[in-house]
């Protein structure tokens, strides 16, 4: 996977990463983001100067424990109101393009 990227940490293969993020970019956007993101990566590179030896990563501000709800039936949401927001609906289901030929 990493061979798809340029070696230098300050230069990103914008088109490839946009593909991963499911974003279609115009050639103008590609040029603009390349310049801006290289600049931003150059800036965040300063983190490499921090001594993080032995420091635990922090994923969350508060101590977290797993929370399970009771296995009980309940009503959640208004189906008609939810489906009203869908771009395409048939028989109370979302319609999407064909996935398997």
């Amino acid at each position: 996977m990493s061979s798809s990227f340029n070696e230098s940490a300050e230069h990103m293969d914008v088109e490839y990463v946009a593909q991963l993020a499911r974003l279609h970019l115009t050639p103008e956007e590609r040029t603009l983001y390349q310049r801006q993101l290289d600049q931003i990566l150059g800036y965040v590179d300063e983190l490499k100067a921090v001594d993080v030896e032995g420091v635990e990563p922090m994923a969350h501000p508060m101590p977290r424990t797993n929370v399970l709800r009771r296995d009980e039936c309940g009503t959640r949401g208004d189906r008609e109101a939810v489906l009203a927001n869908a771009p395409s609906v048939r028989h109370h289901q979302f319609v999407v393009p064909k996935i398997v030929e």
Binding site: M1, A18, M58
Partner: peptide, 24 residues
């Protein structure tokens, strides 16, 4: 795009994980 990059294979440790440690 930036967020996808810092989470991607080969860059996760250098960016995302390191930033989580600096957050500590």
């Amino acid at each position: 795009i930036l967020g996808t990059y810092v989470l991607s294979s080969g860059y996760y440790d250098a960016y995302y994980l390191r930033a989580q440690k600096v957050r500590t």
